[in-house]
């Protein structure tokens, strides 16, 4: 599903190259649950953003379902990313001005899905996540765990093949964190590929493979 060949990322600033990622070679198959670990500044998030097509690598090749992402125009990238990839963040990143229902609806609006179908999909998901009663609340009226639930619901509403989670439990207490991890596990069992960045050994265990990053290198 995902193939990275010699991916590097650096920032150039007056003749000094600051490397974030160096020569990353990685292959991820459909249905895997990968945990990326490493100290702060190791390049974990950058790797996740590059895989998620929100950022581009400075060097190297990236194939997504055998399509060369590194050669794609921005419009194609956006299309690919919006139909195949869902994101979950440590800070939830919900739109504060929209209600739970509207937050869930927004990705579907951008996919140009018809109103009736859209309403059905949102209602299904609200039901599945037990949030029907909270659909008209705004994000700041919810607890952190509930916000993260909404964020995950929003990430999977377009039925993506790949979910990228950047420390999804980082801001939650352990009970809520566990709940979220269980949910991700369940999604993985249903066939969604998941890549998560985490600091917690315990959470990493939910995955079936652990990649350790240090100073931009993958530790073997």
């Amino acid at each position: 599903m995902i193939k990275l060949n010699n991916i590097s990322k650096y920032y150039e600033n007056k003749f000094i190259k600051t490397f974030v990622l160096r020569n990353i070679n990685l292959e991820i198959n459909e249905g895997e649950f990968i945990s990326v670990m490493g100290p702060s500044g190791a390049g974990k998030s950058t790797l996740l953003y590059i895989i998620g097509m929100l950022d581009t690598a400075s060097e190297g090749e990236y194939y997504f379902y055998d399509e060369p992402v590194h050669k794609m125009k921005e419009k194609k990238l956006t299309e690919l990313h919006k139909s195949h990839i869902g994101f979950v963040f440590q800070q939830y990143h919900l739109i504060d001005e929209l209600t739970v229902l509207e937050n869930l609806e927004t990705p579907l609006l951008y996919q140009k899905i018809k109103t009736s179908e859209r309403k059905g999909m949102v209602a299904d998901l609200l039901d599945r996540f037990n949030m029907v009663a909270k659909k008209d609340l705004f994000p700041n009226q919810l607890s952190g765990g509930q916000q993260q639930l909404v964020a995950i619901a929003r990430a999977i509403i377009t039925k993506p093949k790949l979910i990228l989670a950047d420390e999804p439990t980082g801001n939650l207490h352990s009970g809520q964190g566990k709940e979220i991890m269980e949910l991700l596990k369940k999604l993985n069992d249903e066939g969604t590929t998941i890549i998560q960045v985490t600091h917690s050994e315990e959470n990493a265990k939910y995955g079936n493979k652990i990649i350790k990053l240090n100073d931009g290198w993958i530790e073997k």
Partner: peptide, 16 residues
């Protein structure tokens, strides 16, 4: 700006 970033991530095209 955060809102705009989120919108991009959840699939907004530049046009949107």
């Amino acid at each position: 700006i955060k809102e705009i970033g989120i919108r991009k991530i959840i699939g907004a095209l530049k046009r949107d």
